[in-house]
Design a protein around this nucleic acid. Structure first.
Length: 948
RNA sequence: GGGCGUGUAGAUCAGUUGGAAGAUCGCUACCUUGGCAUGGUAGAGGCCCCGAGUUCAAAUCUCGGCACGUCCA
C-alpha cells in the first residue's frame, strides 16, 4: 500500500485543487486550475527575480536574515510554540555526524527515539546547518549554500500516552497562514506538493512548499519506521506506524531572504557587502567591460532564471554545462561567446562562493573546531583551502584572516560561539601557511612525478594526477597549471576528469566500508533485573554483599582467559566504559573464592568475568581489588583535571577527543592546532597539581539530559555523547565540568600528584597527553631515576653530568671515526707508495694485492686512496677476514688498467675460495663469503690471474 | 575510521637493477679589487629518522615504531 492522498481542509478553504504534475507525476495543490506543473520542475522558472514575492523586507544581508528569522519565530511564538536556542554546528552530542545538517538533528537520536523528552513541545527554532555534499555547486548554481539556517517548528506526538499536540491539518494551516499573512505571499504563487519522505529507517508523508519556482519549505510527518511486516511500501522498503509521531519541518531562511530581495542570486540577498567588496578587490567590473557590447545585467538576469531549472550538482561536466547554457541563452536572445561566458561566470562563481565558505568556516571554528587532516577538522581545512584557491584565482591581495575578519564583522556581527576572535585568526593564518607550503612543495613534486613525461606531452597520465591529488593535495587543475609553468607547456586537463576522480574515490570508500564488520559479542542471559550500581553511592566501598542471579560459561570471548560470566543483583565492580578499564577482585561465598578478571557492561547488566563458576541464588561477598581501582580513579580524575588545565592554558578550542585509563597510565587526547612543547606540558602539570592542592572536593550530580544541556551546554560531552536521559556530572570547582559515568575521587587531594609525561600526535590537530598520577607517578619517577642511574654508571659520571658526558662521548666518537678513516688510508698509502712488498708494477700498471684488517667501510676508504689517481693506473685487490671474509677490487677508471682488467670477472674468479659471491661494476667490485680461512688462497689466485 | 605519500649535509632536494653518499644555496679559508656586488680555488659539514629481518653486501627490499604531509568517509 502507498500513502493516501493528503486531503486537508486548509487546502479546500483557501481554494486549492489537487492536480498531478505532468513532468514529475507528483500530486500537488494549487489555486490555479489551469496549472499543469507542480512548480519545482525543469520547466518552472524562478518568477521572483527582480519581482520579490515577499514584501516589506527592504534590508539585505545580516539585517535581512535577522528580521526574517524574527518574523518566522515571532509567528510561531504567537501561536503557542516555545522558541529554543539553536544548537552548535558541530554535532558533538552525536557520534554518527560531524556537523548539524538539519534542525531535527538536534533531537536525534534520543528525543526521536522516545528515550528523552524534547526541550519543549511544540517548539520553534532557527538552526544554523552545514552541508558539504553540494560544495562544488556553491557559487555556480546561484542557489546552493554549504551553510544555511533551517527554521523549523517541531512537534513530538505520543498518541499512546495521550500526547497529541497537532498533526498535518494544523501544521499546514500554520505554514499557509504564516506565508500569506506574515509574509504576504499570494496564494496563487504557492503550490503544495505531496512527496513522501524516507531516510535513516524512518518515513512519513511530506509536503513540499513551492513559491515562485523555489522550494521554500518541507513539512515532514514522520510516523513510520522500517519493518519487514509493515503495511506501507515506499521506494522498495516496508514501513509500519510507530508510537512516536514527529512533525519535522524545514524552512530555508536564506531562501525566504532571496524571495524577499529578488536578487539575481541568493548570494546577493544574504552577503551583499561581501559580494560588492570582492568584486571591487578583484576588479570584476573592469574585466567585464572588456566586452562593451555585452549587456551584463541582462545576461546575469537570464542566467539566474535559468539556474532555477538547470540542475547543477557536483560532478557535472564543466564544458558540457557551458554549451547548454550558451544554447539556452541564445534561445532567449542573449548572444555570448564561450570566452565571454567563462570570463564572467568563473570569477563570479568564486566571488559568490567565498562568503558562503567563510560563513561555514567561521561557524565551525567559532564552535571550537580545530582544523585537521581527519574527521570534522578536515572539513574545515577543505573549506579553508577552497577559499584560498578561489582567492588566488581572483588574484586578491588579502589574507585568509583578512577575509574572515571582514566576514565576521559584516555578516556575523563579530559573534563567535566559543572561540576568541584572535584564536580564529591565528588558526586561519596557520592554515594559510600550510596551504602556501603545499603549493611551494607542489612545484617540486610535479617535477619529480612527471620526470618520465615528454615535454611536449598534451596530458598528464591519469595515475599521476590521482597521486598528485591524493598524496600531495594538488587538485587536477592545480597540477596542470603548475605543470604548464614547469616545462610541460602543452598539457591540459581532460574533460570530465574531476568527475571520474570523484567516482573513483566513491568506489574506494565503498570498498572500505564493506570491510568494517561489527564484532560486538553478546552473552546470552535471561536476567531482566538491572544490576544496581553501588559504586556511585560510595566510590571508596571495598566489599559488598550481593546475590548471584546468573552464572554461565563465557565461551571463547572471555577476556584475560576468563571462562565464566556472573551476574549479581548489585555490584561495586565498575564495568569497562568511558575509557576506564573494568574493575577486578574476588567473589567469595562460604565454600569457594573466585577471581573476577574483568568487568563489562551489557545493556543494564554488569557482567563479571571469572575464572570459576559460583552457585546461582546464593549470597556472596564481593571484594574489590582496591589498589587497582584507586589507581584507575587517580588516573581518571587526573585526566579531567589536566583537561581543564589545558583548556585554561591553551584556549576554548580544547576539547577531549578521547581518553583511556589503565593502571599504568592515563591518556588524554585533546584538540589543538599546534604541537605541544615541554613548556606547555610543564604549565599544565603545574596547574593540575595546584588544583589538587586547592580544590577540597569534587561535586557529583545527576541531571536529566534536558536540564544538563540547559545548565552546562555541550562542553559537557567531552567524553562522547552519553546514552539515556539521566546524566552523571562531575564538577571540579570552576576548573572542569563533564558528563562522566566513571569512578572519581571525592577529594582531588587523594590523588597525591600528577605528572604529564609527554605528548604524541594522534592526527593533525589532536595531541595525546600521557599522564601518570598517584602511585603510578611515583613508580614512573623511580623508573626514570633508574634509567639515569644506569646510564650514568656506564659513563662513570655523576648523574648531573650525564647530558654533558653523553654529548662529549658522542662528538668524540664522531671525531675518532674520522681520524680512523684518515689513518687507515694513510696506512695503505704508506704500504703501497714506498715500493713495499704489497705493490708491484706490471707493464705500467701498479698491482696491489693484500690482506688487511677492517670492515667494508674502511676497505672502501683504502681502495679509494689506491685507485683515484689517474696518473697511477692501479688494480687493487683487498681482502679482509671480517665477517666470513670480504674481497674488494678497484681499478683506476679511464686508464690502461681499466682497459686490461675487469673487476667483476676477477672477483667472480676468486670469490669461491671463501665460499661466497659478489658483484659490482667493471672498475669496482665487492663480495663476501662464509669461510674466511680461504682468504689467502683467494688472494693468491688473484696474484696468479694478474700475472704476479 | 580507511587509503596514499615523505623522512638523506645548516636549507631545498637528487640518488636508476641492492654494489665507492651527491647537487644547488649557505658556511670557512685563500686568490682577484682601493672597497662592494661578483668571479675563481680549496675546505669543513652525513647514526641516509629509529629498531629488527633478508643478503656476501641495505640510503635502496620486508616488518615494526616515531615524525610529517595528503585525500576520502
Amino acid at each position: 500500500m502507498a500513502l493516501p492522498p493528503i486531503d486537508l481542509a486548509v487546502f479546500h478553504d483557501n481554494g486549492f485543487v489537487r492536480k498531478q504534475c505532468r513532468v514529475t507525476d507528483l500530486w500537488f495543490w494549487t489555486t490555479d486550475a489551469e496549472r499543469t506543473t507542480c512548480g519545482d520542475t525543469s520547466e518552472d522558472e524562478y518568477t521572483f527575480i527582480g519581482a520579490p514575492l515577499i514584501d516589506g523586507f527592504e534590508q539585505r544581508g545580516k539585517a535581512l536574515k535577522d528580521t526574517m528569522r524574527q518574523a518566522f519565530l515571532g509567528y510561531f511564538e504567537a501561536h503557542g510554540h516555545t522558541k529554543i536556542d539553536p544548537y552548535p554546528v558541530l554535532a558533538r552530542w552525536r557520534d554518527d555526524l560531524h556537523l548539524t545538517i538539519a534542525s531535527i538533528a538536534d533531537f536525534q537520536p534520543h528525543v526521536t527515539s522516545g528515550e528523552v523528552l524534547p526541550p519543549a513541545n511544540p517548539l520553534a527554532v532557527s538552526q544554523p546547518c552545514i552541508r558539504l555534499t553540494d560544495v562544488d555547486a556553491v557559487g555556480r548554481s546561484g542557489r546552493h549554500l554549504t551553510t544555511f539556517e533551517m527554521m523549523a517548528h517541531h512537534v513530538f506526538n505520543r498518541p499512546d500516552e495521550g500526547i497529541e499536540i497537532y498533526w498535518m491539518e494544523s501544521c499546514v494551516e500554520h505554514c499557509h497562514r504564516m506565508l500569506t499573512e506574515t509574509f504576504g505571499i499570494p496564494s496563487s504563487e504557492i503550490t503544495y506538493v505531496e512527496n513522501p519522505w524516507c531516510g535513516g529507517g524512518n518515513a512519513g508523508a511530506a509536503v513540499e512548499v513551492i513559491v515562485g519556482g523555489l522550494e521554500l519549505a518541507t513539512l515532514v510527518f514522520m510516523d513510520m519506521e522500517e519493518h519487514p511486516d509493515g503495511d506501507v511500501e515506499l521506494k522498495g522498503d516496508r514501513y509500519r506506524t510507530m508510537p512516536l509521531q514527529i512533525i519535522d519541518t524545514g524552512y530555508g531562511l536564506e531562501r525566504f531572504c532571496w524571495a524577499a530581495a529578488g536578487t539575481p542570486t541568493i548570494y546577493e540577498a544574504i552577503y551583499p557587502e561581501s559580494v560588492a567588496w570582492l568584486k571591487k578587490l578583484s576588479g570584476f567590473q573592469e574585466k567585464a567591460t572588456r566586452w562593451p557590447d555585452l549587456d551584463l545585467d541582462r545576461l546575469l538576469g537570464e542566467m539566474s532564471r535559468l539556474n532555477g531549472i538547470m540542475n547543477i550538482e557536483a560532478g557535472v561536466d564543466g564544458d558540457k554545462l557551458v554549451s547548454i547554457f550558451l544554447e539556452r541563452l541564445k534561445e532567449r536572445g542573449v548572444e555570448v561567446t564561450s570566452e565571454q561566458f567563462r570570463g564572467i561566470t568563473e570569477p563570479l562563481a568564486n566571488i559568490y562562493a567565498i562568503p558562503d565558505h567563510l560563513h561555514a568556516l567561521c561557524n565551525m571554528l567559532g564552535d571550537g573546531l580545530v582544523p585537521s587532516n581527519a574527521k570534522a577538522g578536515y572539513l574545515a581545512r577543505m573549506l579553508a583551502r577552497r577559499v584560498l584557491r578561489m582567492r588566488d584565482d581572483l588574484s586578491l591581495s588579502v589574507s585568509l584572516s583578512d577575509l574572515a575578519e571582514h566576514h565576521l564583522d559584516v555578516n556575523m556581527g563579530g559573534h563567535l560561539n566559543k572561540q576568541h576572535r584572535a584564536g580564529l585568526l591565528e588558526i586561519l593564518a596557520l592554515e594559510e601557511e600550510r596551504y602556501a607550503e603545499m603549493l611551494r612543495k607542489g612545484v617540486h613534486v610535479i617535477q619529480t612525478q612527471l620526470k618520465g613525461l615528454a615535454s611536449d606531452a598534451e596530458a598528464i597520465p591519469d595515475e599521476d594526477l590521482f597521486t598528485l591529488n591524493d598524496s600531495h593535495g594538488l587538485a587536477p587543475d592545480m597540477a596542470v597549471a603548475l605543470a604548464r609553468t614547469s616545462g610541460w607547456a602543452n598539457v591540459s586537463l581532460r574533460t570530465g576528469f574531476s568527475a571520474e576522480m570523484a567516482e573513483r574515490h566513491a568506489l574506494l570508500a565503498k570498498a572500505a566500508a564493506k570491510n568494517i564488520a561489527a564484532t560486538s559479542t553478546k552473552v546470552d542471559l535471561d536476567v531482566v533485573q538491572p544490576t544496581r550500581l553501588t559504586y556511585y553511592d560510595n566510590v571508596y566501598e571495598r566489599t559488598l554483599q550481593a546475590e548471584v542471579l546468573a552464572c554461565v560459561e563465557a565461551g571463547d570471548e572471555g577476556p584475560h582467559g576468563a571462562s565464566w560470566v556472573v551476574v549479581l543483583d548489585q555490584t561495586l565492580f565498575y564495568p569497562e566504559g568511558g575509557g576506564q578499564e573494568g574493575d577486578q577482585g574476588q567473589i567469595i561465598n562460604e565454600s569457594t573464592t573466585v577471581s573476577v578478571l574483568d568487568t563489562m557492561k551489557q545493556g543494564s547488566l554488569v557482567l563479571h568475568f571469572t575464572d570459576a563458576p559460583v552457585e546461582v541464588g546464593v549470597e556472596v561477598t564481593c571484594v574489590l581489588d582496591w589498589r587497582r581501582r584507586k589507581q584507575l580513579m587517580d588516573h581518571h580524575t587526573a585526566v579531567h583535571i589536566v583537561g581543564g588545565a589545558a583548556r585554561k592554558l591553551l584556549g576554548p578550542h580544547i576539547f577531549q577527543a578521547g581518553s583511556h585509563l589503565s593502571v599504568e597510565s592515563g591518556r588524554l587526547d585533546i584538540t589543538h592546532f599546534h604541537r605541544l612543547t615541554r613548556q606547555d606540558l610543564d604549565a599544565m602539570e603545574d596547574l593540575a597539581n595546584e588544583v589538587l592542592a586547592t580544590v577540597a572536593s569534587t561535586e557529583k550530580s545527576e541531571l536529566n539530559r534536558k536540564d544538563a544541556d540547559l545548565v552546562h551546554g555541550f562542553d559537557l560531552y567531552q567524553g562522547g555523547a552519553p546514552k539515556g536521559d539521566s546524566i552523571r556530572i562531575l564538577k571540579i570547582a570552576d576548573h572542569d565540568t563533564q558528563a562522566c559515568g566513571g569512578t572519581h575521587h571525592d577529594e582531588p587531594g587523594q590523588i597525591g600528584s600528577i605528572r604529564v609525561i609527554r605528548s604524541t600526535a594522534v592526527q593533525d590537530g589532536v595531541e595525546r597527553l600521557h599522564i601518570v598520577a598517584g602511585e603510578a607517578a611515583l613508580g614512573y619517577a623511580r623508573t626514570q631515576d633508574e634509567l639515569v642511574r644506569a646510564s650514568a654508571e656506564v659513563f662513570g659520571v655523576h648523574q648531573d653530568d650525564l647530558p654533558k658526558a653523553a654529548s662529549r662521548f658522542f662528538s668524540e666518537w664522531k671525531e675518532q671515526r674520522k681520524t680512523i678513516e684518515h689513518l687507515e688510508s694513510e696506512i695503505v698509502r704508506l704500504r703501497t707508495s714506498g715500493g713495499g712488498d704489497a705493490s708491484s708494477l706490471v707493464d705500467g700498471v701498479r698491482m696491489v694485492v693484500m690482506a688487511i684488517e677492517g670492515d667494508l667501510k674502511s676497505m672502501t676508504t683504502m681502495l679509494k686512496e689506491l685507485t683515484l689517481d689517474a696518473d697511477q693506473p692501479t688494480v687493487a685487490v683487498l681482502g679482509s677476514a671480517d665477517g666470513g671474509g670480504k674481497l674488494m677490487i678497484g681499478i683506476t677508471e679511464g686508464t690502461v688498467a681499466s682497459e686490461r682488467h675487469n673487476a667483476v670477472e676477477l672477483l667472480r674468479a676468486i670469490s669461491h675460495h671463501i665460499k661466497g659471491g659478489g658483484g659490482g661494476r667493471p672498475t669496482f667490485a665487492q663480495g663476501g663469503g662464509s669461510d674466511a680461512s680461504g682468504l689467502q688462497e683467494a688472494l693468491n689466485a688473484a696474484r696468479a690471474l694478474l700475472g704476479l
